[in-house]
Amino acid sequence: MNKKKILDGLKYSGTIISHPIQGVYEMRFEGQGDMTACIILMVLFVFSVILKQVYTGFIFNTINPREYSVIREMANVLFPFFLWCIANWSVTALMDGEGRFKDIYMSLCYATVPFIITNILYVPMSYWFTAGESGFLGIVNGIGEVFFLLYAFIGNLTVHQFSLSKAVFTVILTLFGMVFIMFLMVLFASMFDSLYSYLSGIVTEIQLRV
């Protein structure tokens, strides 16, 4: 829990960017990386996404300030983030994956680093370019997205020690799992809604009669 460990954990993202497979392997089996550092990275990621939306230059800024909500945007990032982790954990537990929940989460956090960098780069660049030169920003954004997905995939593959084909199969299963979890959540929400209205109905009834 000391400062040095967190700092080392943050620095470890450099290792993962340069040597993704080896880096994640050492994170999983040799105790490299740090949980607190990963949480910081995740917060930084959310921070960079919101930074990009809010502080992009006027020409490329597409948000409607009358309807924009920071909380909603945070949820938009964090909800799929954790949904992926949970679904992936559930699927790989059944498929002899070697990764624990902690490892799945940490590998995903380290994968966001290139996206954080491009998101932060995007903001000053958007002030410099004109509408006709939007391609440059598209490239920057595209690099971030592609590397994020690539590192997330490699990280997941290494954490579980899967072969390539098995990893692709797991990713597809995980996506189905995410949909399934969301379905269950909606189901529970509507069920609790019914339960609440039933109980409140009883309470009203008692209040009226007693």
């Binding site: 829990m1 607190t36 949480i39 921070f47 809010v54 920071v70």
Partner: peptide, 29 residues
């Protein structure tokens, strides 16, 4: 385990205040 949690909350608070400031700064029509 309390320290990182505190840290996260602090950053979240910072983020929120930043967002609301940005909202006010945003050019409206």
């Amino acid at each position: 385990m309390r320290k990182p949690l505190l840290c996260v909350m602090l950053i979240a608070c910072l983020l929120l205040s930043l967002g609301s400031v940005a909202y006010a700064d945003e050019p409206t029509s």
